[in-house]
Design a protein around this nucleic acid. Structure first.
Length: 597
DNA sequence: GCCATCACG
DNA sequence: ACGTACGTGATGGCA
């Protein structure tokens, strides 16, 4: 038991429970993480059943290495791996061919550390090298600092924790010119060394802040991100383009019409300032050119309807027209740059292009890459409202979901004090706007505007106010939840993330505090689901898109039914890790396009 | 480079 | 009296 003694000295508390030895870092003491890993590996070798729920759960590695690669392009289909540096506690070396480290990459007893693993692992896997057991110092930094888009580059993190300044001079691919110099090798080696050092420092921080479960979940979700980047999704651009040309014609016609009605030939309909000016001159007192503002005048002026339509079509053409062509690879697939932690709430994001924001009308042009395959598409039913039910503990909300009621209809019936069967479709629409808006702090004025913009329905400010009051009278615990969030010093998700004085604080009194636990928990449940899916899916199934509450798989037609079962099962199980008080429901279907229909 | 706007959830 | 639901990414105008 000498080893256990040593672990105790390193700051770990030992407990024997159910025949297992559990370790927990006390938060003080030496906590030499590198040494602890060695000791734990010794224990594992001697077949002592040891379970360390904080350190690494069941994972103990015989060795840790950090790896950094330099590539000739940003995406693997456009280039190759030019240089690989690998570092362990004995120093670093450089190799040019991934083949030389193939055994290390696949060894499940060696932990590979990358800074931004989804980049490096994507490249290795694209060229046929399996990478088992890896982790990511960039993700650790994002989790520790609760900052997502800034200060997480290797240079930033190195500066913060190692107090070293590293130059980015050689980082730009365009400076490489295909020639690798001694300088490049040193640069690459240095990055691997820094990554190695950072791993142990950041791991200590993760334990100290009790964020290991959060890290573990993000790391387990990484393979899904790599899949998304690797696979891409097929897009029938030529067909979409003929549609775009139609939109173009329509847009030009509307533009002429608007100009003639407003008697303003110089008007640029893309300029908010000019629209406001021109409309004011015409006698319509808009204060902004946003759709919500224009909606107020839509019933009274034909020209407003035209402008609203123009803006919609213009958006499609400018953001999703010819610009998409350059994003399409030789195999007709679009590969977005998916980010695992893109939002402050830890939602995923996607850029160039943003595949999470494709317009509904374009979805029917996204198709499986061959005739023998089909999309299996699943999405959570009203997930944020279910998370709200769990967190707020609101009995009415919980009952509604337990009984499988139509929540919007129920909300309308509660507020209007009438039987569910008597609720009209219009009333249901208002309740729907209320359900989605009020939980994040919408005012009665905002509700009024939203109802007009989305459904074209007029309600007075008094009616909206009455609706709002009625909502919180009915769902009283939601009001309690919001009040608690405004005042609390500590805001948390159900998956273990938190905002506090020590990590990062959310503005006191800010209504975005309502949203963070809900959107954050939903994102955590989705990542748990993605992990399960990656374990359970057949290897020929392709993960092609993930949009916050929706997962799209591309599977051989013969697997259609089993894929539906597995996908919805994983989604339910993943989210149910956190949501216990209400059932999780998933709508699943198969389709020859991404169209929801 | 920032702002307003609008695509998605 | 004032401003008025959260989280993103991409675009065009404007300075």
């Amino acid at each position: 038991m000498k080893i256990l003694k040593q672990l105790e000295q390193l700051g770990y508390e030992l407990k024997v429970r159910d025949g297992n030895i559990e370790f927990k870092f006390r938060g003080e003491g030496a906590n030499d993480y590198e040494k602890s890993l060695e000791l734990l590996y010794e224990i594992k070798k001697r077949k002592i059943r040891a379970k360390n729920y904080l350190l690494c759960h069941y994972k103990q590695y015989k060795k840790v290495v950090a790896i950094d690669i330099e590539t000739t392009a940003t995406m693997p289909q456009d280039g190759k791996i030019a240089l690989i540096a690998i570092n362990d506690n004995k120093g670093s070396k450089v190799v040019y061919d991934a083949k030389e480290i193939e055994d290390i990459l696949s060894d499940v007893e060696i932990l590979k550390v990358f800074h931004n693993a989804s980049f490096d692992v994507l490249w290795f896997e694209y060229f046929g090298y399996k990478v088992n057991e890896y982790t990511d110092t960039m993700i650790m930094s994002q989790i520790i600092n609760n900052r997502i888009r800034q200060e997480n580059s290797l240079a930033d993190v190195a500066h913060k924790y190692l107090n070293v300044v590293i130059s980015k001079q050689l980082q730009d691919i365009s400076n490489w010119n295909g020639v690798i110099s001694q300088e490049h090798e040193e640069y690459c080696k240095r990055d691997a060394e820094i990554t190695y050092k950072l791993y142990f420092i950041l791991m200590n921080e993760i334990h100290r802040l009790e964020l290991y479960p959060v890290l573990d979940r993000e790391i387990r979700a990484l393979p899904a991100i790599i899949e998304l980047r690797k696979n891409g999704i097929k897009f029938e651009y030529d067909k979409w383009y003929t549609q775009i040309l139609e939109y173009e014609k329509e847009k030009d016609m509307i533009e002429l019409e608007v100009k003639s009605i407003l008697n303003d030939q110089e008007l640029n309909l893309n300029s908010p300032i000019q629209i406001i000016e021109s409309l004011n001159k015409f006698g319509i007192n808009v204060t902004s050119s946003s759709d919500e503002e224009l909606a107020k005048f839509s019933d009274d002026y034909e020209v407003i309807k035209l402008i609203r339509k123009y803006k919609k079509i213009k958006k499609r053409i400018s953001s999703f027209g010819e610009k998409l062509k350059e994003k399409i690879d030789d195999d007709e697939c679009i590969r977005g740059k998916w980010n695992l932690i893109g939002a402050d709430t830890f939602r995923m994001t996607c850029t160039s292009p943003n595949l999470q924001g494709m317009p509904r009308v374009s979805k029917e042009y996204f198709v499986p890459r061959n005739k023998e395959s089909i999309f299996v598409i699943a999405d959570y039913s009203q997930i944020e409202l279910r998370v709200l039910a769990e967190i707020s503990n609101d009995e009415l909300l919980i009952d509604a979901f337990k009984n499988g009621e139509d929540l919007h209809r129920k909300t309308a019936s509660m507020i209007l004090n009438k039987d569910i069967s008597e609720v009209t479709d219009e009333e249901r629409s208002i309740a729907k706007a209320a359900n989605f808006g009020l939980i994040y702090g919408m005012t009665s004025y905002g509700l009024q505007k939203k109802i007009k913009a989305d459904y074209g329905m007029e309600v007075t400010l008094e009616e909206a106010e009455k609706f709002r009051n009625g909502y919180f009278e009915a769902y009283n615990d939601v009001l309690m939840y919001q009040d608690k969030m405004l005042k609390s010093d500590y805001i948390e998700t159900l998956g273990g993330r938190y905002w506090s004085k020590e990590t990062s604080e959310l503005d006191r009194g800010s209504i975005k505090r309502y949203n963070y636990p809900i959107q954050g928990t939903s994102a955590e449940g989705l990542k748990e689901a993605l992990h399960l899916l990656m374990m359970k899916k057949y290897k020929e199934w392709l993960l092609v898109a993930v949009v916050h509450d929706e997962i799209v798989l591309e599977v051989p037609c013969k697997d259609e039914d089993v894929a539906k079962d597995i996908l919805s099962d994983c989604m339910v199980k993943g989210m149910s890790k956190f949501i216990k008080k209400v059932p999780i429901e998933v709508d699943v279907k198969s389709s020859t396009t991404w169209d929801k229909s």
